[in-house]
Amino acid sequence: MPRRWNNWCTAVLHRRRYQKDESFYTVSWACNIDGTPFLVAGGLNGIIRVIDTGSEKIYKSFVGHGDSINEIKTQPLKPSLVLSASKDESVRLWNIHTGICILIFAGSGGHRNEVLSVDFHPSDIYRIASCGMDNTVKIWSMKEFWTYVEKSFTWTDLPSKFPTKYVQFPVFIASVHTNYVDCNRWIGDFILSKSVDSELVLWEPRMKEQSPGEGTVDILQKYPVPECDIWFIKFSYDFHLKTVAVGNREGKIYVWEVQSNPPILIAKLTHAESKSTIRLTAMSYDGSTILSCCDDGTIWRWDVVASS
């Protein structure tokens, strides 16, 4: 049966007061090793807040980044591990159970400007991908540092005394875009990324095992998104990697079927009152619900409804 989308509600985003200068840019669900759900948030002041959703209190605060935090992502296989991407040109791996900064991805081969997005590989627990204002996407491996990840779970001394390690060299560097790369996500072993050129690009990194950092890129498909020519617009997809949703600067959402060739535009979601830039979308597990966060402080919800 064909699908159509229904605008279910519009809600105003409320701001919880922590500090006067605390503006959040990113949030991610995570959980403690005992299953306690946490909300991990970061933004303008560079401090990561781990919030216990049950008690509605701050469980831990992570200080380490030298500037604002642009994105936080949770490891799907170990949800007590989170990555943070920062304006300070680094990515950091944190253990929210012990409060330890385990690894810092920066240095000689690191990003040369703000890191805008980061993502864990869905099945390879050692690999991550990051992108930023230096127009590159970098793939990193934690394999040789994994003993430090394991040590972080049993550490009993002060978090500041943990032997945090620098990962200075990525295993692959891709120049798929010619401008800021503000969002990248793994699609299996492929990567979907976007810049300011009004399109998403699906590509495959072909790494040279003998020459870390080198390789070639195969462009697989492109998904046009009109009026999406400004930076800091994030896309999302469902759990099964079938559909992707991305907003634009005119308040519209484009929903593409990722796995079809050529790509199929499933829907263009519009509303007369949605005219502000959509900075972020979030798609439900099965792709039947999409939330969007807008510059005017509103959150929109769209639901799939059956039609004859």
Rank of each mutant, 00 (worst) to 15 (best):
L93F: 07
V12N: 14
A272T: 06
W155S: 04
L39R: 02
G247R: 06
Y166G: 09
N45G: 00
D286L: 00
F232N: 14
T270G: 04
Y254I: 04
H121F: 03
S130P: 02
I33G: 14
T164C: 13
D295R: 13
G46H: 10
I48P: 12
V244P: 10
W146Y: 10
R16L: 12
V137W: 07
G43F: 03
E56Y: 10
D189N: 12
G99Q: 11
W256H: 07
F172R: 08
K208L: 11
N32E: 14
K143R: 12
Y148F: 12
C183S: 09
H271Q: 13
K222G: 02
Q210M: 08
D34W: 06
F172H: 10
I266A: 14
P226A: 14
Y59V: 10
I51G: 00
N45Q: 10
S276Y: 09
D295M: 09
D119S: 11
L116H: 04
T281M: 01
S195V: 03
G54K: 04
F62P: 07
W203E: 03
G43S: 05
L83V: 11
L77M: 15
S55K: 15
L192P: 00
H240N: 13
W203R: 01
A30L: 02
T289K: 04
N7W: 11
V171L: 13
L13H: 07
K20I: 01
G107K: 06
H97T: 12
L44C: 11
N95C: 14
L116E: 05
K275H: 10
N179Q: 07
P262Y: 08
